[in-house]
Computed example of a mutant assay.
Amino acid sequence: MDTPPLVEEQIRRAVLAALEGEGVEVPCVVEVCVTDDAGIRQTNLDMRGVDRPTDVLSFPMFELSPGEKPQADWADPDTGKVLLGDMMISLERTRAQAAEYGHSPEREVCYLAVHSVLHLLGYDHLDEGPMKAQMRAREEAILGGLGIQREASDAD
């Protein structure tokens, strides 16, 4: 799938903002695949046994805890960068969710990219309590730094 250059730039900005917002000081690589619902559905089925499309999938290279940082000695000796992991975003689902939630596609794609980077850095939202609240707070702080505020219609 060809990714529009504007979307590539939005994802790049969001990934860099998330890394900076989490205080990651070593150079990192996050591999990003932008696809459609069919592509992400197949990956979701292959990797997680879930036969449905989703908005974003994250595949961390390391098992980190929230707040834990990648270390320089984890870097690939050829590049000097740490491969943090992979993310896959369904652009089709992103656009549909933006319309459903009443906000811009830019906000949604940036949110999903930040959300994914936080997963790569060990955050999770398996519970509806403290873990989810911690992740949401970090997402909103990072998006706020990008000038992307949560709109009233976005409230949970």
Rank of each mutant, 00 (worst) to 15 (best):
G67P: 04
E151I: 00
L146C: 06
E22F: 01
R12D: 07
I89H: 02
D127H: 13
E108H: 06
A96Q: 13
D124I: 05
S58R: 03
E151V: 02
Y101F: 09
P27V: 12
E8P: 02
H115Q: 08
V29L: 09
D46A: 14
R95Q: 10
R138A: 08
Q10H: 07
L45W: 06
D76Q: 07
F62M: 06
S153R: 15
M47A: 09
Q42T: 11
M88V: 15
G23H: 09
M135D: 04
E20I: 06
V7P: 01
A99H: 08
N44S: 11
G67H: 04
E128H: 14
L83V: 11
V29P: 02
D154Q: 12
E139Y: 10
L121I: 15
Y123W: 12
M87K: 13
E128A: 14
R13W: 00
R41A: 08
D156V: 12
P105V: 14
Q42I: 03
M88I: 15
L143W: 00
R48Y: 03
F59R: 06
R136G: 09
T94S: 12
L6F: 01
A113Q: 11
V114E: 00
P77H: 01
K69P: 00
K132V: 05
I89S: 03
G49V: 03
T54C: 12
G21H: 10
P27L: 05
E20F: 02
Y101E: 11
E128Y: 15
P53M: 04
V30F: 03
Q71T: 09
P70H: 09
L143R: 00
D36Q: 07
P66K: 13
R138Q: 13
